[in-house]
Design a protein around this nucleic acid. Sequence first.
DNA 1: CGCGCCATATGCCTAAAGGCACAATGACGA
DNA 2: TCGTCATTGTGCCTTTAGGCATATGGCGCG
Lengths: 258, 258
Amino acid sequence: MGNIWAPLAKAIAATGTDKHVDCLIDLIGADIEHDLVTVTRYSTTQTPEFVKHRRFSDEMVRRYLDNYYVFDPFYASWRRERRLGIMPLKRLADEEAKRGQYIAGFLAQSEICDEVGIMLADGGDWCLGIFLDRSTSSFKESEIALLDERLPVFEALHALDIKARGAEFSRTSAPTSPGASPRQKPTIPVSLWPELSLRERELVQLVLAGHPTATIAERLGITVGTVKNHRRRIYDKLDITTERELFLQFFQRRDPEV
Amino acid sequence: MGNIWAPLAKAIAATGTDKHVDCLIDLIGADIEHDLVTVTRYSTTQTPEFVKHRRFSDEMVRRYLDNYYVFDPFYASWRRERRLGIMPLKRLADEEAKRGQYIAGFLAQSEICDEVGIMLADGGDWCLGIFLDRSTSSFKESEIALLDERLPVFEALHALDIKARGAEFSRTSAPTSPGASPRQKPTIPVSLWPELSLRERELVQLVLAGHPTATIAERLGITVGTVKNHRRRIYDKLDITTERELFLQFFQRRDPEV
DNA sequence: CGCGCCATATGCCTAAAGGCACAATGACGA
DNA sequence: TCGTCATTGTGCCTTTAGGCATATGGCGCG
């Protein structure tokens, strides 16, 4: 085992910054020889998002997102079981037909012969999959065991990054795929602003999560004009005129010390 | 070397919480046999603060604070040189008279025969000293080397804790000693965003109080254009692009639960 | 002395929020 | 049935924030 402390210190310091994912990759791959890295985000309800890769081709990324993700056994596993942790490809007791197509099609074209996924919770129904890939030999059981031993640290680091940044600002996120976002229950309690309707509360939640009008419209499957209408109506009800006043009211009602 | 990964994961997860210091102690002491632990905060200008101890006596704490801290070679070293890092007692090229008194007096009464300090930056002119103590044998050079190797991780964890909480909220702090004159503290603490200048902090304070650019300009006696410049510079430093992200960062750093 | 940082200022442009008005539909209760 | 409310949509205009570039002077440091 080599010196793990320097990449570890860097990964700790990088939580909450742009460099988190890169440092996490460095840490994960520190004692495990690998040829490629891919980083993907999976949801149980949306198509995967490709976050980042090392020594992989943009063309293969495009093919994955266009077609091959359907056969991705890691993605299937997430959607079916939402299982986190270290996940070697060879252990995926997936449908053999799909796995076969993933291996014969996508992995072969990518010159990957084995893959191990490190699946970390990423907020909501999402997970972040960091994949180490081998081109010429398979991962050994001792290497998998090493990753298993270190998993709590990877998880803690990523949890800290989410906490520091908030899931909505996660640097692991990519643009939302086309299609209506599934309805989420609002986390803004009725008691905070009892005069607001359910829809209005949904919208306030997104505002307070930092989303601009265009993103909110997209998220809720409505037009920008409608979002503005809602904003207007919310401001009227709360006797304010700007978004920043909404933030302040939230501060004050939630945490009177501010 | 034993299993370091579980205490490491716990220490990572504990940053920004009440348990940070305890988990840091666990991590530091994981592979180093020790009998006692003491945790002290040193300033270059104020008397030391006793933060925490394990298997040490409250009576000895009282004696230290009443009298013996004057002879404490670690405290003297901090005041003189502000040196951080791993610091074995036997390496302190201190005044022999003072060191002698610390050893013959305080350490002997505490049944401590050797001590190693892990000195971590704690904000301002303060450092946090975590001391592993031995009752019957000295620390070996190999043990010191192990701590030296791991120091960057200890430092990164503690830096993250400070960052998450802000020095004003630091759980390592104790009540100001009697007679210390209270300092004027800005509403926006330096430690919240240490990269911001004083002027920038003034401006952020007004932004977070809900003022638009025109009002801020008026309040600070500068032009709207200059306010925009400051905003731009602040956003660059904080790696954001909008005011709403500033609100969110403030939420998250002040109250990570949001 | 040169450089970097900080604070201040100007100008121009674009993007986004806010303001206002109007419209339609559906659900619900009196 | 009617009135109210919620939700959705359109259009137009104004205000404000953000983006970018440039400039100057003061200060501290190597």
